[in-house]
Design a protein around this nucleic acid. Structure first.
Lengths: 207, 207
DNA sequence: GTTTTCAGATAGCTGGACTATCCATAAGGA
DNA sequence: TCCTTATGGATAGTCCAGCTATCTGAAAAC
């Protein structure tokens, strides 16, 4: 297909497609002549993946490129596949203070207590610590017990999630599933939490 | 205290504090003379709240202002308090197609099936539908059963979350807890999911 | 054979989030 | 007291991300 059709099928404007090509998010089409190229289903799919990462996950263009590159480089080792989620680190340096140092210890303790196998380099450690630090700075230390409930939930969910990943017929499929499950999964969970919260609150209000 | 101390205690640069004052995210200090003002603990706290929303939640300045305004306007009615989370809608118009229409029905069905009390106007409905639409466009329809597990988790978490909110001694505290629980809670859950996923995957790999 | 579309290149635009200066005044220390 | 530093308020400037527009020959489509 030509670029117009690619645009129509994905809802992405042609100038934006060109921009993504330049930015290295989308491979060039197959050139049939110096100024004609055609695109296949892989382009449609890749473009949809890019949009999911950008729109749902809120990833920047460069973060998206990094994720896609790690995806491509995954070999059959599962931990290598998981690298894709490593490109989703935080953006800026956190404010170093006592609350943050304390939060880091708390994260280490939680991981140890649960016997989780999490590499030191996993950026989720830093992300969790930073979020906790904000919580305590705001004086919401009494929300910390909730953390255990969240961890329970995460632990419970991990099982079917990994099932889904390992059920893919090939490595590329696995890597892509990791990425979508990570990014879109956050959005799903976030929306469901908001709705469940409203529902529960409304129910209590009725009493 | 003067602005320098406010800056030191929160880690926010003075020019940025001035910017937040102009943007209406932070109330002006109490003027003691035409060019001297002093700030109190409320300013420290408000500034920390702003940074949590911006850094952890990734909210824009205008979204942050909107959230803070809704927070201030909350009365004793719980549903009014919940309005704070309504300022967290999506940023751009979604791509309308069959997948999205389908996803919307699926969301309605899920809410009905679970007997959730969720207003039509709750933006989480649209957010969930959009995320689901991306999932199906990517051909990950087999991930949909996972949605039920996510919903289970959200439902389970809602109970202690609402407990925490209702445990606050006053309305302002409740409203702020809703906001922090919504925004920081997302970050906590996201990080915990990533870690639990890595752990579970590593464990399976060992077999 | 005329109108439309294309690839590739380059330049421009818009909005958001700060950051820098300036001014006149006020604090704070030697 | 005098002098350095800090301050509030105002205004202007910066930087970057993510597009968007235009141009140029050449190929498609009708």
């Amino acid at each position: 297909m030509r670029v117009a059709e690619l645009s129509q099928r994905t809802g992405v404007p042609i100038p934006t497609i060109k921009y993504y090509l330049r930015a290295g998010l989308l491979p060039a089409g197959e050139l049939t002549s110096p100024n004609q190229a055609h695109y296949g289903e892989t382009h449609v799919h890749r473009l949809r993946l890019v949009r999911a990462l950008v729109e749902v996950g809120g990833l920047s263009i460069s973060a998206t490129r990094a994720v896609l590159e790690k995806m491509r480089g995954a070999d059959s080792q599962l931990h290598s596949i998981g690298k894709a989620q490593f490109a989703l680190g935080p953006r800026t340096e956190p404010h170093e203070d006592a609350a943050l140092a304390d939060a880091r210890t708390r994260v280490d303790e939680l991981i140890e207590r649960r016997g989780w196998l999490v590499r030191e380099s996993n950026p989720a450690r830093a992300g969790l610590a930073e979020a906790l630090a904000h919580l305590t700075r705001l004086g919401h230390g009494d929300a910390l017990p909730l953390l255990e409930r969240y961890a329970d939930a995460a632990q419970t969910l991990a099982d079917p999630e990994v099932d889904l990943v390992l059920g893919r017929p090939n490595v590329d499929g696995m890597a892509e599933t990791v990425v979508t499950l990570t990014v879109i999964g956050d959005a799903l969970m976030s929306a469901l939490r908001r709705m469940a919260q409203e529902s529960e609150a409304t129910r209590r209000l009725a009493d």
